[in-house]
Design a protein around this nucleic acid. Structure first.
Lengths: 157, 157
DNA sequence: TTAGTAATGGAAATCATTTTCAATAAGCTT
DNA sequence: AAGCTTATTGAAAATGATTTCCATTACTAA
């Protein structure tokens, strides 16, 4: 039962089982919500959405599951600076929806953007390669985020 | 006494006073520590360093001051994913030490790097301009951070 | 000096996230 | 299908960083 670096491919069940994790009702429910919500959900958001259908899944399990998922690279844990972590499903098998975030520091609104992604991906590739070699780092992830004021907040009183 | 967007230039005293903030012993002490420590200090780290010399400066004041400083753009508030915020002085008048972070997700070691900054700055400039226009966002800041395993941790058991 | 208000610290309060622990359930083995 | 091993669970309690309260102190300007 390998438990460490299980970054293989395959979806859902396979990924879980292959790493020695058990596939439980609660975990599937959480994955389900994440998949259909397309948002940036906090642990509690998820709890709220899971609870009606699975009243016996507790907040603790949500946190634990998110931890596992993020460890497996299936979920990104995000920080928008408002004191609670947000989670979103990592892009599916296709790597389809690669995007980054634009955060309003006033109202906390978050915009997903996909502009400039090509140039960015290019830079990231180079940077990761360069940094990895220079600092002997095995880079697994990155965060790019812009902060500022959205139209509404920038035109406030 | 304007209190809002005080992003003018000028250093220290001027910046403070100009925004209606008072320059107190505690605030200077904190700025001092940040200036000479060149690190990524947590509120408590700062408290520890300030306390010997100014035993009457409390943790609460540290937090409050860091909040003000970060609001003024004099300090960056960073999140390395270990549950406590870190702070570092924004680059001085010169914009000299622009850098980003490489974070080991295992031992939490943080490396500051300045490689690829030129290309990056170029991309950022474009991105900020493009996003700002498209989403009507007034971008004030950004975060770029890479996560991975440092040499030591990647070669662990 | 005096009034008006910013700033302070210590204690208490918040609040997201973790830990503890006994009970339960998954998935392998037979 | 039944047993067995061990991952998983929920509820309650613990944790720990950050905030809030509030009465006191210290600037600043007139």
């Amino acid at each position: 039962m390998p438990r460490g670096n299980c970054q293989g491919q395959g979806w859902w069940h396979g990924k879980f089982r292959g790493c020695g994790y058990r596939l439980t009702e609660g975990r599937e429910a959480i994955l389900d919500i994440l998949a259909k919500s397309e948002g940036h959900l906090s642990a509690e958001d998820i709890y709220m959405k899971v609870h009606p259908k699975y009243p016996n899944v507790g907040l603790t399990t949500i946190y634990r599951t998110l931890d596992v998922l993020s460890g497996l690279g299936m979920v990104y844990k995000l920080d928008f600076g408002d004191g609670r972590a947000r989670y979103e499903l990592a892009e599916g098998p296709k790597g389809a929806h690669h995007h980054h975030h634009l955060v309003c520091t006033d109202c906390n609104k978050v915009i997903d953007y996909t502009d400039f992604i090509d140039e960015e991906v290019e830079l990231l590739r180079e940077t990761e390669k360069g940094l990895g070699k220079k600092y002997n780092f095995k880079i697994t992830n990155h965060v790019i985020q812009f902060y500022g004021l959205c139209g509404k907040c920038s035109g406030k009183k």
